[in-house]
């Protein structure tokens, strides 16, 4: 896929918006590529981490927010740790994911990942803690193609008593609900 950059993108406030939301100033990046060089998941990405920063620098909102890269970032923070200009790249991925979800443009190819996050947070919202069994069930239900994946692990976990069917609800469930309500 080729990208055409016009003055429309170049003049956009995307980088400014990112900075306002996260405090991350992408102008500081001089595109040395060290983030990409050390990224353990880069080989799976559609764009390299340094390219994602470049998108933000040049106002290429669509390319950044619809990329698979932002979802494939494992948040290992190797990039930010080694960045010579101290740009928080991993944290930038967080804010781009948040924006992609808000705008409903998250890449459908990484639906497994977004669904996992959804199922995880639903469990927290409901019980205050994770119920691994019910979180897994929701995920598998919503992503039926993954149903057979790791099929052998579940029963082994059960056998070792490591997967409980009864969720543990915390006393302050209401307080958790309130947090979720406030920060929808």
């Amino acid at each position: 896929m080729k990208i055409k950059i016009t003055t429309k993108e170049l003049k956009s406030d995307f980088a400014k918006e990112v900075k306002e939301r996260s405090g991350i100033d992408v102008k500081k990046c001089y595109q040395c590529g060290k983030c990409t060089a050390g990224c353990p998941v880069a080989y799976e990405m559609d764009y390299m981490p340094n390219q994602i920063i470049r998108f933000v620098q040049l106002g290429l909102r669509r390319e950044a927010l619809t990329s698979r890269t932002i979802w494939l970032c494992a948040s290992c923070i190797t990039c930010s740790t080694r960045c010579p200009k101290e740009v928080k790249i991993a944290e930038l991925m967080d804010v781009l994911r948040e924006m992609a979800l808000e705008e409903g443009v998250a890449n459908p190819m990484e639906k497994n990942i977004t669904t996992f996050h959804e199922a995880f947070l639903n469990s927290v919202k409901k019980h205050g803690r994770i119920s691994e069994f019910w979180m897994l069930s929701e995920y598998k239900r919503k992503r039926p193609k993954t149903a057979l994946q790791d099929i052998e692990i579940g029963p082994q976990l059960m056998l070792k008593g490591k997967l409980s069917l009864t969720p543990h609800d915390i006393k302050g469930k209401k307080s958790i609900k309130r947090i979720f309500e406030k920060f929808k």
């Binding site: 595109q31 040395c32 590529g33 060290k34 990409t36 060089a37 050390g38 990224c39 880069a42 080989y43 764009y47 390299m48 340094n50 390219q51």
Partner: peptide, 12 residues
């Protein structure tokens, strides 16, 4: 040596 080539968008 883990490097990158940003001109091709690759990990090296």
């Amino acid at each position: 040596v883990l490097g990158a080539d940003t001109l091709t968008g690759s990990v090296v």
